[in-house]
Each structure stands twice: as C-alpha cells, then as structure tokens.
C-alpha cells in the first residue's frame, strides 16, 4: 500500500442542537503519492469537512483514515499536532499569516514546533530555501502588509512546504486573488507537483479544478464523481495567453 491517503467508509455527522447534519457519508478515497487532486462541490457539500479530516484538524465518526502509512483513527490530540506539523502543509484562502511577523518568521513557524531538535540555524536556512523556492528570496524581511496578495499566498505556500510534508492541502487558495495572480499560484502548484509533491486542492470553481489531474466531486456528503481531468489547463500557457491579450488591449 503506497498510497499517501487511504480513506475507508468514512462518516462524519455534526449536531446543531438536536438536529443531525450528516456532513460526510461513506467516503472511500485513495490518493497516491504525486497526485494533484481537486475536491469540488458547492458549499454544504462536505468538502471543507473532508479537508479538515484529511488535514487532521478534525476526526471522523466512523471508518478509518490512513495518512502516509499511519492510521490516524485512534490518535490523541498531540499525535494529531505532530502529523499536522510533519506531514501536512496548509494553504488557506485568507493566507493566515501572522500579521506582525515578517516573511521568514512566518515560514519558520512549523519548524519552531517541530520536535526533532532542529537547530535555530537550520530553521533559518530551511525557511530561506522555501521562500526562494516560491520566488520570494528577496522579500525575507517583509511583513504581510508590505506584500501583495499573491506574494502573501506564496509565503503561505513556502510555510506549507518548509517541513517537506507528504501532502499540500490548499483550501480555496486563490479565492482572495485577482485572475493573473490566481494563475501565478496555479503555475507554482503545477511546478511543485511536477517535482513530486502531492497536492489536494479544495475549490468550487471548475475552471480552477482543471489545473489539477483528477477531480473528486462531492454532493450532500457523498462522492458523486471521481474522474481524471481530460481537458487540463496549464498555467504556463494561460499566462502567455494573458500577456498577449494584454498587449493587444494596450495597442
């Protein structure tokens, strides 16, 4: 079993007062290492719940979930924290950077909570390397307010990557970005995926889902479709096209 993610017969139910809200019903999902999967669905479809469970922020009620070979079903809170620290990199819609810390301090954060005894020097080295990888090597000491939205999201991606996680979980990562920066971010994702990183993208826009390789569609807590992308978009060519259009408009 060399799947990165293995989910079997997973159920999750919420209670609001006495009302039972089944968020996920009988989910079976396997994701292999190196995949680029988009989880799609309207709001209320259960995609956020699924993402929280995959990201070890939440626990399933029934069924089991194996991440990178370890069964997370009966783990304690601290073990969850360890998994989040070592195996998962989060990228959020709202970037979720510490507003008063600069770029490199933000990227360092997961390493500070790492329990492998990494030295402060190595923490700094790794963080700078991660920022260079997302193209922000020259913005190390900029705080979030001094960065554009796209740059902030790159810092968040660098933070997600700094601990070499098994998967990168991106929850509507371009929701707060304009179309040009959106494509920029997807280009970075496609690049990272080509380098072997497993990426799970949660989105409700089919256009963006087409940047991935496989789309899993949720509706009312169930997986409705699970198909490979046939009309895949490539961010690099989209960017070229965009530049060309802009030039024509300028003329």
């Amino acid at each position: 079993m060399n799947n990165t993610i293995n989910i079997n017969n997973l159920d999750k139910t919420y209670f609001i007062g006495d009302i039972k809200i089944p968020a996920l019903r009988n989910i079976n999902l396997s994701i292999e290492s190196g995949e680029f999967v988009a989880i799609m669905g309207y709001s209320g479809s259960g995609k956020s719940t699924l993402m929280n469970i995959i990201g070890c922020l939440d626990k399933p009620d029934k069924g089991n979930y194996l991440l990178d070979g370890s069964d997370t079903t009966n783990m304690k809170k601290n073990e969850y924290a360890k998994i989040r620290n070592e195996k998962i990199g989060f990228v959020f819609q709202g970037f979720n950077l510490l507003p008063k810390a600069n770029a490199v301090e933000n990227v360092e954060l997961p390493l500070l909570y790492n329990r492998s005894g990494i030295t402060s020097e190595n923490i700094r080295k790794k963080s700078v390397a991660a920022l260079e990888r997302v193209g922000l090597g020259d913005r190390l000491d900029h705080t979030p307010v001094q960065l554009s939205g796209g740059q902030q999201q790159r810092v968040a991606i660098a933070r997600a990557l700094v601990n070499s996680p098994a998967i990168l979980l991106a929850d509507e990562p371009t929701g707060n970005l304009d179309s040009k920066t959106t494509i920029d971010v997807f280009q970075l994702f496609q690049e990272l995926n080509e380098q072997g990183l497993t990426i799970i993208l949660v989105t409700h826009e089919r256009d963006f889902a087409r940047y991935s390789k496989r789309i899993v569609e949720l509706r009312d807590g169930r997986i409705m479709k699970d198909k490979l992308v046939t009309d895949r978009r490539y961010a690099k060519s989209d960017l070229l096209l965009l530049d060309k259009n802009n030039e024509e408009n300028d003329l």
């Binding site: 601290n78 924290a81 360890k82 989040r84 620290n85 979720n96 954060l109 997961p110 909570y113 790492n114």
Partner: peptide, 16 residues
C-alpha cells in the same frame, strides 16, 4: 484567536 488557529494548524500542541 486566528494566530492560535494558525499555530495549531502548523503543529503546535495544546501545551505549547
């Protein structure tokens, strides 16, 4: 609260 959420999401334990 959000800062705490961020710290928890990157692997901070409750005791941290």
């Amino acid at each position: 609260t959000r800062e705490i959420g961020i710290r928890l999401s990157v692997g901070a334990r409750e005791q941290d």
